[in-house]
Design a protein around this nucleic acid. Structure first.
Lengths: 242, 242
DNA sequence: CGCGGGGTTGAGGTCAATCAATCAATGTGG
DNA sequence: CCACATTGATTGATTGACCTCAACCCCGCG
């Protein structure tokens, strides 16, 4: 996979979801971004924090997670390249969830003060950021539905479709082959399932010829049928080029 | 219950979540709002629509709902007085969920063109609106967790706590007594449970002395224990006065 | 070579769904 | 005013999807 810069990741994502002029892009390119690499399962922001910066995913995979009083973990969404998982922190002072890496990831940190200044002076960019948080919300809505009303196999197929679509939009997929070293435990926490059941559902998807896995490689062997099996419709991702 | 005007509902909500000056309030009071009454289970906006207006809940209860391919309904969030359920439509052209009334409700419609003009000229108000959509997103996140990782009884208690908190913030509750004629079927669709099981969980909460119901009245008899039973923490509501 | 993390497998248990009635409250037309 | 339909709440019996527990395997690594 090719290395891309933090600005490219950010700008690519914003362009994917909104119309920005060359002037806006120049402003975005000027944002100072502090890059850092992290191992899997590293907590980037903790529930209860009051951060003064937000971060963009430059490479890898990040999850927003919550823990119940019983200590069970729920991943409430995935974030791929270009996404700004905690952008809501810009206007909600206290974090209500934890963000952690789900695989080795490169992260870029941006100061809230910088982002706020840009939003004030460039309404077009402010709208793009707002829209980004609205798409995150649309994905949360879909996840509520997925976890609440779909059975395990459908749920599994659905989340794989989402991951593949989002990674493809971000240019990280060729021919339905994704390189995501995500553990079955993480998938379980995202789907509200046990790891044992995740394992069995993956087996069934393989048995049906819908996917193939080898190591961290995930391949959609039969995209139309996988979409059907996952009751998947891209509308909620609000991308332009799907 | 006292009747309030559409402006009051809207302004009350925005003041609850952000700092607005008198000048901003005057602008908000000037928004033209078309009021209309609806019966329960009326679809206000349909999935797939491209609306040119957003609506504020003046009285009643609205749910954002999605349907799976199998026809199962999932309510992904409730909206109470002052909330603007489809404010995200301002920047996401296609609706990815349906909004419908869950009880007799009064709704106020506002044109997108008006809202956009206000946002451009009054950044403080724009931020307040943005913040409103961010709180909606925080609630979706909590619901993913609730549906994904909590067992039925906890889930039930949790949603009741949320409803009571939000209604109280909106001034619709005195002494933990709420007047919500919401059906058990709707609760089931919000929790990802069958109506039969909703019924049994409500019975257990009554048996434990945590709640009392009579007709559409819901009363929290033992708030601290209900909060404990629901694994409930108000942080995610991002209200100031809780 | 032993250790640990992740994946896989089998057996048994349980929570919640489904199915099928019944009941209470409300409304409606004759 | 009463027969009847409708909507929502309630109950019991049965079924099934998914969880838990407990192994075991595989592979990379110190």
């Amino acid at each position: 996979m090719s290395y891309i810069s933090s600005s490219e990741a950010l700008i690519g994502k914003l362009q994917r979801i909104s119309d920005l002029g060359e002037a806006d892009l120049a402003i975005l390119r000027g944002i100072s971004i502090q890059e850092k690499e992290f191992q899997p399962n590293h907590n980037l922001v903790l529930e209860g924090d009051k951060p003064s910066q937000s971060f963009v995913v430059i490479d890898g995979l990040v999850g927003s997670t919550k823990y119940t009083g019983e200590g069970k973990r729920q991943i409430t969404s995935f974030f791929v390249i270009g996404d700004i998982p905690d952008l809501h922190g810009l206007h909600l002072s206290i974090m209500d969830c934890t963000f952690s890496t789900l695989m080795p990831s490169r992260i870029g940190f941006m100061r809230h003060s910088t982002l706020r200044a840009i939003c004030e002076q460039h309404p077009r960019i402010a709208t793009a950021f707002w829209r980004s948080t609205l798409i995150d919300a649309a994905i949360y809505r879909e996840w509520v539905t997925n976890v609440g009303r779909r059975e395990a196999l459908t749920r599994m197929a659905h989340i794989l479709c989402e991951l593949i679509c989002r990674l493809r939009a971000a240019g990280r997929i060729e021919d339905h082959v994704a390189d995501i070293p995500i553990t079955q435990a993480a998938l379980g926490d995202a789907l509200g399932l046990s790891t044992v059941h995740v394992n069995r559902m993956l087996q069934e998807l393989r048995r049906k010829g819908l996917i193939a896995t080898s190591g961290s490689r995930l391949q959609a062997l039969n995209w139309p049928d996988l979409v059907r099996a996952g009751d998947f419709d891209t509308t909620y991702l609000h991308q332009r080029n799907l």
